[in-house]
Design a protein around this nucleic acid. Structure first.
Lengths: 334, 334
DNA sequence: TGCGTTTGCGCAATCGGTTGTTCATTAAGG
DNA sequence: CCTTAATGAACAACCGATTGCGCAAACGCA
């Protein structure tokens, strides 16, 4: 800016070589003697020269920028998750000389994304949230821009990285069934439809494997707000649920509050468990069993795949990451 | 990228004018007839031409990028706040043709910031969190890079935008004192030292104005963890506190849990209030009185100031934003 | 009509890199 | 010893914009 940064021309002049040589010394491409190469690199090191990524980008029609898209308005519970994922993305990006441009979009809005993609010419995009009908996905596909979705989607041809919700839910359900639960209620929340379906899949599978009869009336897929959650809890209790499996930690805390208000004891009368094991659970009484995902790793994986994509490499359509079941007091002693 | 975007040269050729003319038509600078101007703009509109910001930046030695710095590891309670501030920054940035580069840094780490500043040549930086001894501030000042701090700092010459914690705390304290509280405990938390000091200032002032005696032994400035908070609560009760003013909502929820465990009724025996009015409070029983800040507006204001700074304009050193006191059940009927 | 001023626009350099091509030098091969 | 190939480095065009300067046409005024 004002500091009058040293340019490649300065380096070239100082060493009495051409810009080309300096450029080649740095990139390692093209023919150059080991000798001059070293000379250039030493000089650069000494004088703390950093190439201007912008000019480099202009010349290469690349920007070394990735765009991370996330909702402008954010559910409280998503934030820590999104933040960790972003940290993971950024970590991998930085290791490869990329930086992160932030795109905060309204739900299913494309104008912001389009602006950034078009006049920033980002090399790739990570979508942190996708919808069943997703205009951003459609836009990116139409424009043939490399992108990766964090989380699952039903769009075809989308490279996805997700937690293995199905297995996670299967394992948790199996554990619960294996320890005497008979009627587990499944409470969906603000999760995307696809995630919910995946978990339901695992839920069903667990029942099948333990050869028990599933009670479909205990499955509540789409609870938009606290009121509906309250209703679902009432219904579940009415129908004799002995366990409530919540789709995220915020819902879970709320459920526990509701149960306390009804003088239903946890885990005495009803067991409770949830997903994400977020820090919102810390210090809760009783300690809540939850499934923990490594959000950071999710971000790293997504970024790795995206970079591969931008190189034109083939990338596996769907990467599933592992999870850990954390059992605590709210499910009793399993 | 692959879509082979239309460039300024294409536009110029198509219209039979020079690149200069097109450029001038767009920027409005330089001499150009109203006639050609319109012709160019129409063509651009029609053919959906978007200038390449990168090239523009290269030519102008600007990047139209701002850098937002926030901690890589984040306290749970900060996140929603940071996210909203960022949204505000982004909003104003976008309106002015700027985009946001994300810089996630470790506490008091500069390497990441330095990298981004040096090879991305961002036009300005927003620091979302500052420390008493802050290497990032020192770095930015040394390099004379325009930046704005969200929150207060004791460094001189730093443009700051902050909530008016002092007035907020004064008003809340006054309200409480005015309705019969005599011994209010002040519980500091993960807040920065400066914020805490500001609030303490307001706290003292409220006591002075109502001509009441402050009990300094009820002021706990620096509670690093839950254990210390527990200790502070015990002490406060011991010393006959009739009200606990918590420095953030997470602390507050924890305090309420502790009180419940001790069978201290809220607001019956002790009143409780906190800061930030974050959505974590939603649906809590009892509803918690809290002070609400407009984080989004904070971000907008910060960005506005930063942009002014980059233009070389003079900017007021400190901008304080307003707040709203939200009284609910936890403080009884005030 | 004549001359100075204003207006409208284009030329070409520039920003800081990359890269295909050329050219001189050295090495290898017969 | 001459031809051919390989090597190392420089030239110059290019990426896509901006901008100082120059030039011609139009305008204003006496």
């Amino acid at each position: 800016m004002n500091h009058k940064n040293i340019t490649i021309a300065d380096v070239a002049d100082a060493l009495g070589v051409s810009k080309t040589t300096v450029s080649r010394a740095i990139s390692g491409k093209g023919r150059i003697s080991e000798n001059t190469r070293k000379r250039v690199l030493d000089y650069i090191e000494e004088h703390d020269y950093i190439p201007n990524v912008i000019a480099k980008g202009l010349a290469q029609s690349k920007t070394y920028n990735l765009c991370v898209v996330m909702p402008r308005e954010n559910m409280f519970v998503d934030l820590p998750f999104f933040h960790k994922v972003t940290a993971g993305i950024q970590e991998t990006a930085e290791q490869n000389g990329y930086d992160i441009l932030l795109c905060l979009c309204g739900e299913n809005e494309v104008t912001g994304l389009e602006r950034i993609v078009r006049n920033r010419k980002v090399d790739g995009v990570v979508l942190l949230r996708t919808l069943v009908k997703d205009l951003q996905i459609e836009f990116l596909q139409k424009r043939k821009i490399p992108f990766v979705a964090v989380g699952s989607t039903w769009y075809s041809g989308v490279v996805q990285v997700d937690n293995d919700h199905e297995s996670a839910c299967r394992e948790m359900t199996s554990l619960l069934l294996g320890h005497g639960m008979k009627k587990i209620a499944l409470l969906g929340g603000n999760e995307s439809y696809v995630v919910m379906k995946n978990r339901y899949q695992g839920f069903v599978e667990a029942y099948v494997r333990s050869q028990m009869q599933i009670d479909e009336s205990l499955v509540f897929m789409d609870l938009m707000d606290y009121d509906m959650t309250g209703y679902a809890v009432d219904e579940a209790l009415e129908r004799g649920a002995d366990c409530i499996l919540c789709m995220d930690d915020v819902i879970c805390l709320h459920v526990i509050r509701l149960l306390r208000a009804k003088n239903v004891r946890v885990p005495g009368d009803v067991k409770v468990a949830s997903f994400y094991n977020s820090s919102i659970l810390e210090n809760n009484q009783p300690a809540i069993s939850s499934i923990s995902f490594d959000a950071r790793e999710l971000g790293r994986e997504a970024c790795k795949n995206l970079l591969a994509l931008t190189q034109g490499e083939r990338v596996s359509q769907k990467t599933l990451l592992s999870y850990e079941v954390r059992l605590r007091d709210s499910t009793g002693q399993l």
